[in-house]
Computed example of a mutant assay.
Amino acid sequence: MAFAAQRPWIQNATLRDNILCGHSMDRKRYDQVISACALEPDIALLPAGDLTEIGERGVTLSGGQKQRVNMARAIYSNAEMVLLDDPLSSLDVHVGGHVFESGIMGLLRECNRTVVLVTNQLQYLQHADVVIVIEEGEITHRGPYNSLSVKNQWWSRQFILPMDRSTDINNIEEERALLQKQINLKRGSKHANGKEGPDAGVSSGGENFSVGERQLFCLARAFLRRSRILIMDEATASIDTETGNKLHELLTTAFADRTVITIAHRVDSILESDRIVVMSKGKVVEFDTPNNLLDDKDGVFSSLVLASERGQTTL
């Protein structure tokens, strides 16, 4: 079995060695994997190509690059079963769509390999043979994609985006109450110190919590500090749609008078921003209001939104 973890495992070795991981080199298959994982442009920028040494834990690579190297290793392997734990969360809609179509649906499915994909991105569910919905550690639905319906409470909640901005937060106690209501941390489960809920112990690096839960911890800490400037770097990438919607509502109310800088690949999470900066290969390619960027039908941001909408409308 091959496993691509939610937190990419990267060796202090060359990029090529990280992908081969002890397997012999099959140039044709290797090139197919590099292309499927959209690593060609990244390799072209590295000083020694795929023979470039990657620092400890991949410090010389971005989060998206590490995730794609992680994916490439799993795809290149000969394992009959491939477990992918939310591997597309750090990728933008174009790159994520390419990796899904060429890597997962292409190199993996076309070779009749069993793929278990853990994801919060609903646009990929329609391609699954079986969809398993897990809520609070329990399976609440199991069946083919077309068995999901509006009668399913979890499915219905994924498409409701709270937009009520009438909440008026007058003091820190009200904000704390709203935060407790909006961010649903693990309930009823014991952790490192044997305690439950907010008193549960957190082990070194937060290893006893999922990546999504750790993101919620970081967000809660940032929210409660009441800083004038809040910077969120892919802060909701590993969070499910329902929780992401609640966080969106919190930001538009509790932080209406604050400066919020959001770094994100999910375009739906930044559509209500005052200004949007679009970057490509380390350079600013677009900067304007969301409406002006959307009016440019040939623009980069407009194409990202269109690709995202196409993915959602297929649901």
Results as ranks from 00 to 15, higher is better:
Met1Ala: 15
Met1Gly: 12
Ile10Tyr: 08
Ile10Cys: 12
Asn12His: 15
Ala13Trp: 06
Thr14Trp: 04
Ile19Ala: 02
Lys28Leu: 07
Val33Phe: 07
Val33Lys: 03
Ser35Leu: 00
Ser35Gln: 06
Ala36Cys: 01
Cys37Asp: 00
Ala38Ile: 00
Pro41Cys: 00
Asp42Lys: 02
Ile43Phe: 02
Leu45Asn: 10
Gly49Tyr: 01
Gly49Ser: 04
Gly49Cys: 04
Asp50Met: 05
Leu51Asn: 13
Ile54Thr: 02
Arg57Asp: 07
Arg57Ile: 09
Thr60Glu: 08
Thr60Cys: 07
Ile75Lys: 00
Asn78Ile: 03
Glu80Trp: 01
Asp85Pro: 02
Asp92Phe: 00
Glu101Gln: 14
Glu101Pro: 01
Ser102Ile: 06
Leu107Gly: 02
Glu110Cys: 07
Cys111Asp: 12
Arg113Pro: 06
Val115Ser: 07
Val116Glu: 01
Leu122Ser: 10
Leu122Glu: 05
Val131Phe: 04
Gly137Ile: 08
Ile139Gly: 10
Thr140Val: 14
Gly143Lys: 05
Val150Ser: 11
Lys151His: 15
Asn152Thr: 11
Asn152Asp: 15
Trp154Lys: 01
Trp155Lys: 03
Phe159Tyr: 11
Leu161Gly: 09
Met163Lys: 13
Asp164Lys: 08
Arg165Met: 09
Ser166Ala: 09
Ile169Ala: 06
Asn170Trp: 07
Ile172Ala: 10
Glu173Asn: 11
Glu175Trp: 03
Ala177Glu: 08
Leu178Met: 07
Lys186Gly: 10
Gly188Ser: 12
Glu196Ala: 15
Glu196His: 15
Gly197Glu: 15
Pro198His: 14
Gly201Val: 14
Ser204Gly: 11
Gly205Cys: 09
Gly205Asn: 12
Gly206Leu: 03
Gly212Cys: 10
Phe217Asn: 07
Cys218Val: 14
Arg221Cys: 12
Arg225Trp: 12
Ser227Asn: 14
Leu230Lys: 13
Asp233His: 08
Asp233Thr: 08
Ile239Asp: 00
Glu242Cys: 08
Thr243Ser: 12
Gly244Ile: 03
Gly244Cys: 03
Leu250Glu: 05
Leu250Trp: 00
Arg258Leu: 03
Thr262Ser: 13
Arg266Leu: 00
Asp268Asn: 13
Ser273Met: 05
Ser273Val: 02
Arg275Leu: 10
Phe287Ile: 08
Asp295Ser: 14
Asp296Leu: 02
Asp296Asn: 14
Asp296Arg: 09
Ser302Gly: 04
Ala307Arg: 11
Gly311Tyr: 11
Gly311Ile: 11
Thr314Val: 10
